[in-house]
């Protein structure tokens, strides 16, 4: 995936992770990096900024092993922000796919159509 595209999308992904459940920082990074090629140095600043903006709050919870962990919890305003961002993302990506699908949905179809024309 293209680097400059990432930052905004990762923000949406971070919000989305915390919509499903409260999580500690490393867990968020680990979940997201399973699917996307991003690392801590992209995710942590986003976590921090969104916390500062009041979209997340943090609390400490004991863990079975080692020190207590800092959990992030999404707030009402964070949830509202997520819904807005998600809406505009869906709208955007929907638009992109409408354009892409005009050329055909699967590679074979795209290729077939292209062959027919040339």
């Amino acid at each position: 995936m293209n680097a400059q595209f990432k930052r905004g999308i990762v923000e949406l992904c971070v919000l989305s992770e915390l919509v499903s459940e409260d999580m500690y920082g490393y867990k968020i990074i680990s979940n997201i990096s399973q699917h996307l090629d991003v690392n801590e140095n992209t995710i942590y600043p986003i976590l921090r900024r969104l916390t500062k903006e009041g979209y997340f709050i943090t609390y400490l919870e004991e863990s079975e092993k080692g020190a207590p962990r800092k959990y992030y919890k999404i707030t009402d305003s964070g949830f509202k922000f997520y819904v807005e961002l998600r809406d505009s993302w869906d709208e955007f990506i929907g638009g992109v796919y409408e354009i892409l699908n005009k050329g055909g949905k699967k590679n074979e179809e795209i290729l077939r159509r292209f062959r027919e024309r040339t």
Binding site: G25, Y26, N39, N41, T42, Y44, G66, A67, R69
Partner: peptide
């Protein structure tokens, strides 16, 4: 925050190479 994250990563048995990649 970073000490915590690194500690948890280690507890989960992440190799040093992977750690470096994850943290950048």
């Amino acid at each position: 925050d970073h000490k915590e994250m690194i500690e948890i990563a280690k507890q989960e048995g992440i190799s040093d190479d992977e750690l470096e990649k994850k943290f950048g």
